[in-house]
Design a protein around this nucleic acid. Structure first.
Lengths: 333, 333
DNA sequence: TATGCGTCATGAAACGCTTGCAAAAATTTA
DNA sequence: TAAATTTTTGCAAGCGTTTCATGACGCATA
């Protein structure tokens, strides 16, 4: 007793109108006489008819689905963006296909292809490194793409982000103003533009302004994990740093705890400032001073931006910059 | 110069075979002469043909997409599950439509409907409270559903989880064995079965076994936030508790910091044990002792389970129970 | 030589909906 | 009241695949 799925055709028959009319009422097309609309709606209700989105997608060439490429949902930075994306997507009647890439360019390409095969109407890419091949594929496809929470150094792709350079300048200035002459710069991989071209630049800018010589010894390139930060302390000590700017919160929590577990007093002997103001910054002790980024909003704006592109609306700017902030907590003087 | 999308028909023409044949080679159907297959493959390569998954979905009634209903991606507990789900989904060539519900039953129903409209092949539900209406819809649809990281008290839906009762028993026993006579039970909303029917039961079981009378004063029902835990300290003190079992990590971190900020020594004066062993447990000081749940695996197994249902394979058990553990850290003696 | 069988390929009907075009109906204008 | 408009409807051609009932072909068997 397989219950047959009921289609637009069944509704049309029962309501004694054509499929076209049913389609119109389902889609809210105004060209339907109110009486007819009412009649159709009743039948829809009675039969419990639900339009099949796949058939719709095939006929209209729109799936109301967008693909989201994310390095790792488990990372609070990205999941915050994702949350903003999903909320706005829902608002505009879109759904999200979420795919983890582990920041691995092979996976990214793989994932992009399946997203395109599924005919997503748009794509939001999160990640800090766009391989040439990926870039080529983005450009080759006519599906709109937005970068959320990162910036395209080549300025070809639309993106939503903060002014990383200025934010780092502010954070590092603060540290130097407290009398720190040797401030460590601790970041993730330098092959990510955000680290090598933006954050590091902000760091250098401040040094230049303060007439402090840049010392490569103070630059630590590592990965984004808590553990990586935790074991960095000996190296920080031997480089003679008395403060550190860190490009990631988990990493910063590691640095902070590594220092304290080794007996260093924070902030008396060592100051730390981090970059993303995620929950972690308030859970550790002392709480971490941090650059603040409106992560949820970045996601939300990205999605909103994407809806415009999908509707082929005119957009004036290729990328939008959201305001950042800085919150002083107990990890700095 | 809109470049026309190339279809299976174009490939068929170029390769001088029928669409049916092209379809077979694309789908790896063995009934194709090697020479023909090769010829078709070459044309596919040359034209850069990509099958349209939407058309496929319509024709085959399979979308290779599963819907995932998640309370909040931003919550590490759920995002860990989601990660496990996605990895296994990818392994089996499925994609994930991720939808946040905020544990709001209206949204859940809303989301479920759009997932079904999109013809997902299966659904994974995360959340601790299944409203009657949602349950009705699950049962009404013929799309398979699995609960990940929670258990159905009515035992109607398939699920993957740990033995919550036993896990809590172990954690609370440990606390009592350290000499604590008054152990607080701090959990999220009691209208969630996991709290009221499983965790609390484990707590009571232990009390009974240890011949300690159950005191409702020691039961704290709150929400899952860090802040909620942080402000709970005065109440804990006045209830005379010297230790606490907490049902959520962020909440536990709040309790821990609330106690310490008020000058209580942990674990000397107050012990805390939590439930999910997320990253947070190692970031706070002292580190939190915790029940350990294989979150990633729960997600992974859920998805694997779902693939079986989607393939209509025989499954012996309605629900699978994964092993939990207990890790002792510095927040308990 | 007639028959049967397995392999490989074809044709065409679904799948459930949207949409451009034209016809029909309702309304307005003269 | 007829003509001119405007509003509502219906028709039917897609959208790009899958899949099933058939057929063609080659080869072994009786």
């Amino acid at each position: 007793m397989e219950k047959k799925t009921i289609t637009i055709y069944d509704v049309a028959r029962e309501a004694a109108v054509s499929m076209a009319t049913v389609s119109r009422v389902v889609n809210g097309n105004p060209n339907v006489k109110p009486a007819t609309r009412k009649k159709v709606l009743e039948v829809i209700e009675r039969l419990d008819y639900r339009p099949n989105a796949v058939a719709r997608g095939l006929a209209s060439k729109k799936t109301t689905t967008v693909g989201v490429i994310i390095p790792d949902v488990t990372d609070i930075y990205f999941s915050s963006l994702a949350r903003g994306i999903d909320d706005v997507a829902t608002m505009y009647k879109y759904n999200i296909i979420l795919a983890n890439s582990d920041s691995n360019s092979q996976k990214e390409i793989q994932v992009l292809n399946t997203l395109l095969a599924k005919q997503v109407d748009g794509i939001i890419y999160m990640g800090n490194k766009i391989s040439d091949e990926l870039r080529a594929q983005f450009e080759h496809s006519k599906t709109p793409v937005i970068l959320a929470g990162s910036v395209d150094p080549k300025e070809e792709l639309g993106s939503v982000h903060i002014d990383y350079v200025a934010a780092v300048e502010e954070a590092v200035s603060d540290l130097i103003n407290h009398g720190n002459k040797r401030v460590a710069f601790i970041s993730g991989p330098m092959d990510e533009a955000i680290n090598s071209e933006y954050r590091l630049k902000g760091y250098k800018n401040v040094l230049a302004k303060k007439k402090i010589e840049y010392d490569p010894e103070l630059v630590f390139e590592t990965d984004y994990s808590y553990r990586a930060g935790e074991i960095l302390w000996p190296a920080i000590v031997s480089a003679g740093a008395t403060a550190a700017f860190v490009g990631d919160d988990e990493l910063a929590a590691g640095v902070l705890n590594g220092a304290q577990d080794a007996g260093a007093g924070v902030p008396e002997n060592f100051e730390v400032v981090t970059s993303n103001n995620s929950k972690i910054t308030e859970i550790v002790r002392p709480k971490l001073s941090s650059i603040t980024q409106p992560l949820y909003d970045i996601g939300a704006v990205s999605m909103r931006f994407l809806t415009k592109l999908m509707n082929k609306e005119e957009v004036t700017e290729k990328s939008v910059e959201l305001p950042y902030g800085f919150i002083k907590r107990a990890s700095t003087k």
